[in-house]
Design a protein around this nucleic acid. Sequence first.
DNA 1: TCTGGTCAAGGTGGT
DNA 2: ACCACCTTGACCAGA
Length: 302
Amino acid sequence: MRIGYPCINRTISCCGNKTFRLKSYSEARLKDTVKNNLACLLQILKFNLEHRLLFFRLTSDLVPFASHPINTFDWKKHFQPEFASIGEFIRTEGMRISMHPDQFTLINSIRKDVLGRSIEELKYHVEILDLMNLDADAKVQIHVGGAYADKESSIERFVRRFDGLDNSIRRRLVIENDDKLYDLGDCLRISERTGVPILFDVFHHRLNGAAEMTDEDCLKYTTETWDSKNDGPPMVDYSSQNPVGVPGQHAETIDLDDFAMFLKHTGRFDFDVMLEIKDKEESAIEAFKLVSNDGRVRLNGF
DNA sequence: TCTGGTCAAGGTGGT
DNA sequence: ACCACCTTGACCAGA
């Protein structure tokens, strides 16, 4: 088990997800920004290593406007050495990486233009991981997508579109149960037909589908969708409810009792946990302390 | 220097 | 047809 957090680190004074407005686009600015972002990413990874946080989600803002037509700069070629050396660090230390394109990436959209942009965005994400020479255990997670007033045919469309994706994307793609539309049961049905692994989101499951399956069952079924040889251990997203926020709002800081309970219920399984908590690395460090007595936790990557 | 409106991109659900 | 909301942090113009 590796513990991680997403995208940004608030302890070190280095911002690896800098971007800018489309209006301010220039090639010079893009180069500066990417250079900064990659340098900060390495600093964050070094921080993570020191704190034994071996799981990390890369921000989609690493290369601003990467899949936008305005960006004609060959950033892959230009920054290839930087990507390669960050990748080497990750592999040497046995770290695990994920990425999560945002809500605009919908491969089951009824709109062809949206599908086209989504595929471009997925290409960008897997290119980052490919440039780092990471194995197929580095994943890109998306939701199933919209329902378009007909969930069944939207699932059909997802399956069809997934099967048509380039293998460079398919080998890294995983789907995540969401909080409103596609619950774990839907994801399992889709996985049966496509072979796509399922990333279990604990918090979403509590908001959408909790009555059907216990956490233990969820881990059991989702673990079966990961091919341990190629995909690596299952990934799990964990968050808890913000006690003063509206239902669905992520907690500011980790609820250690709740997390301990989750670990207890899922003790039979090994997986990597991404803590989607507002205070990021702070809660991840707390969680690491909590699980450092757990037989599953990894103190190094191997 | 500070602040609040705004940002490439989609979709849902209420009116 | 239209609008608020989702959710989020940082950009950036204007005070």
